[in-house]
Design a protein around this nucleic acid. Sequence first.
DNA 1: TCCCGATTCAAACAGTCGTTTCAAACGGTC
DNA 2: GACCGTTTGAAACGACTGTTTGAATCGGGA
Lengths: 239, 239
Amino acid sequence: MTAHDDQPVPRETRTTRERLIDSAVRLFGQRGIEGTSLRALTEAARTNIAAVNYHFGSKDGLLRAVIEQTMQAVNDERRRRLDELESEPQPPSAAALVRAFVEPGTGLVAEHGPNGPDVARFIGRMIGEPDPKVRQIFADQVDAVEGRYLTALGRALPGLDEEGVRFAYTSMLGLLSLHQSGAFATVEWPQRQTSRPEGDRSGTADRERLIAFITGGILAAATAETATSAREEARRASR
Amino acid sequence: MTAHDDQPVPRETRTTRERLIDSAVRLFGQRGIEGTSLRALTEAARTNIAAVNYHFGSKDGLLRAVIEQTMQAVNDERRRRLDELESEPQPPSAAALVRAFVEPGTGLVAEHGPNGPDVARFIGRMIGEPDPKVRQIFADQVDAVEGRYLTALGRALPGLDEEGVRFAYTSMLGLLSLHQSGAFATVEWPQRQTSRPEGDRSGTADRERLIAFITGGILAAATAETATSAREEARRASR
DNA sequence: TCCCGATTCAAACAGTCGTTTCAAACGGTC
DNA sequence: GACCGTTTGAAACGACTGTTTGAATCGGGA
């Protein structure tokens, strides 16, 4: 259209490699990994099938790159939050730990701009992935921070054995994943309107509701646990 | 071993159709639907590929039969529990509703005997399924009871708008699914020892912990919600 | 202009998928 | 024993999958 200047419309600012990762995040999140063919993916990225093998070696290589890129920011932020909490005199509460875990996840939507929801859904989707190979790639990225959260949670919830702590952490991770993947939207599931018309309604209210739910659940499970074990102990002592 | 009578060893008591459904439950739950080929499935059922098309028409037909068979018992039991709760004078509490929803799910393990864990994991897996076709089949089976639970939950949690109720229900369903699918078992995910050596430890303690978590989460989210809206209302009124 | 590495492209490869086909085997009934 | 509909079996079909190949294209230095 415009005839003389050099960049009237973005022209093609992102490289092929970046476009591939973008399309992979979106399509993997929408249709799953197995459900996304390289042909559909490369077509969406306006390039050729061979570009995947040239830039990433294989479909798995592309997946690994996507996971690493999307998870690094979350992991870094979670580590930073943990450092911050642990630098204070008293050990962090369960509520503070939940917040420090959830907010970096939900923050993805804000960070990644227009396709933030796609990124969030992609990560949410990874967690339920059946394929052990994918699980391994994903676990490699998460394990480091996971250990720190488990010990911190165990310290914040005394009277809860290791399995109980793991249950709490697992539920937190699962609920965050559920929230991010946008699952259960009853009917109009695969594609949803990305634009949220009303202010920060999604960014704040939904997140706070999620944090409140997780925190309340963890505390309730912890007190129920200790109550049960106390009752059993009393029963043992009474005979 | 025994030589004279008519049924010493099961001989081959289950029909081909039943063996196909059994294998489908197990393999779909372990590797996902897309990840399970008809060849692997029919081999596990000690029959031929064509048997699937003969008995069920297609792989989707088999899936539909599996979902219907496994979900019917859960749905019936949930309906019965709801009838029971709604027959009482006062409306049921959120805690009672959670219990009436979760226990039929976890009860699957006990009902289906040896491969109970497989059935539970299969149902848990269905919920996170990306493929819209599968989601539709699954939704057809669940929608009926879902509506009743939503209205009952809304009545038990006044001051929570429809979206809040849906969030509570969704979280409950997701946590139950998470619990049943056995996901997040850190490392040894795809196959786990099915035998639980110590008494009813799994059957009771795990279930109670899950119910406590969900109930606590729902109540916490509800109170936080009303607190937030009350605060906003106060802010609106103050200027 | 020539050349070179980097990148893109169309085409073909081997393998697996779900489905179909048709003949063989089975189990009662006349 | 002959017949029947029902069920099983081996083999092939077409349509996909991820991967590989080799030639075409591009953008800068010599």
